[in-house]
Amino acid sequence: MTRTKATAVGFIAVLLWALLALFTVGSAPTPPLMLNALCFTIGGTLGVIWAIATGEWRALRKIPFRVYIFGSLSLFGYHALYFSALRLAPAAEAGLIAYLWPLLIVLMSGLLPGEDLRKGHLLGAGLGFFGAALIIGGGGLGFNPAHLPGYGLALACAFTWSTYSILSRRLGDIPTVSVVVFCLATAVLSALLHVALEDTVWPTDTLTWVSVLALGLGPVGLAFYVWDVGVKHGDIQLLGTASYAAPLLSTIVLVLAGFAEPTLHLGAAALLITGGAVLAARASLKSS
């Protein structure tokens, strides 16, 4: 697979994550950790079917156990930290801090062998972050010291996902089928944490079940498989910058679905994120 094709495959994850908010709204009132367990069970099952159909499951026996530990704890840790951060701090502020991960991917990618980090990558990632800030904060953010524990967890969340993505690049020879085990292990860990911390509330109607199924098949399923391909074999700086399209596209989807109102902030954010992606793309072209 070429670098360009792998980057395009990885960007499918960004498109799928744009549907995360819409389907999450539809999945209410299912508790977050229970929702996580259900979705990763669906996503893991999807991977099992793919692995059996293609014969990729044979490669699972050759993957070192430490890789399974690394991937499972990364996926589970990211979501556990994210949900906990949103419980201890306002969603807008915590969400913005958590969304430092694309910028961190771009910065940390400079440590990877064979990667050329250019000024355009940094400027593009910076513009993307400010665009995301406009969307997530709605033009106004007020950081309260009383919420520092939540902010700290959100920052840990950002470092968890960026570190997972960067180290996945170093594991380029590990087949993507390993993500099947990551998803299933995350489902088990999420279920255990749900039993310990939450009340069980099963989906009660067709819309809720369809939303849960859609989450498991897409944003919390297929997205992790295509992201694995992208970060291992694609242009990781361009993918990091392009990831800021997720909150923009997510907001647009919510507007089209009638759950949000179009604003000037959305238009400004679109310009910033698009401009950042163009800068990053031009920098990648120069380095290729």
Rank of each mutant, 00 (worst) to 15 (best):
R3L: 10
T4D: 08
A8R: 04
A8W: 00
I12D: 04
A13H: 05
V14E: 03
L16S: 06
A18E: 06
L19P: 07
A21K: 02
F23S: 07
S27Q: 10
S27P: 09
T30F: 00
L33S: 08
L35G: 02
N36R: 00
G47T: 12
G47V: 14
W50I: 15
A51E: 08
I52E: 05
G55Y: 07
G55H: 09
E56S: 11
W57T: 09
R61L: 15
K62V: 13
K62L: 13
F65E: 05
R66M: 14
I69P: 03
S74G: 11
F76N: 00
G77N: 03
G77F: 04
Y78R: 04
H79W: 12
A80Q: 05
A80T: 09
L81Q: 02
Y82W: 03
S84I: 01
L86M: 11
L88G: 03
P90V: 14
A92V: 10
A92N: 12
G95P: 01
G95Y: 00
L96D: 03
A98M: 11
Y99Q: 02
W101H: 15
L103P: 05
L104C: 11
L107K: 14
M108C: 12
G110Y: 01
L112D: 03
G114Y: 01
E115V: 15
D116F: 09
K119R: 15
K119P: 00
G120M: 02
H121R: 05
L123H: 03
G124T: 09
A125L: 10
A125D: 05
L127D: 00
F129E: 05
F130Q: 02
G131Y: 00
A132S: 12
A133Q: 06
A133F: 05
A133V: 07
L134Q: 02
L134W: 01
L134F: 07
I135M: 03
G138D: 05
G139E: 08
N144E: 10
P145L: 08
H147I: 09
P149E: 07
G150R: 02
Y151G: 06
G152H: 04
L155V: 13
L155Q: 07
A156R: 06
A156K: 09
A158T: 11
A158P: 05
T160R: 01
I166A: 08
L167D: 01
S168L: 12
R169S: 08
D173H: 11
V180T: 15
V180I: 14
F182V: 14
F182G: 07
A191P: 00
L192M: 15
H194I: 05
L197P: 04
E198A: 09
T200S: 06
W202M: 15
L207D: 13
W209T: 13
V210C: 06
L215W: 04
G218T: 14
G221F: 03
V226P: 03
W227D: 12
V231A: 01
K232A: 10
G234T: 12
G240M: 04
G240P: 01
L248H: 07
L249V: 14
L249F: 13
I252S: 04
V253I: 15
L254R: 07
A260K: 08
L264K: 11
G267I: 14
A268P: 07
A270Q: 13
G276N: 08
A277R: 02
V278R: 00
A280C: 12
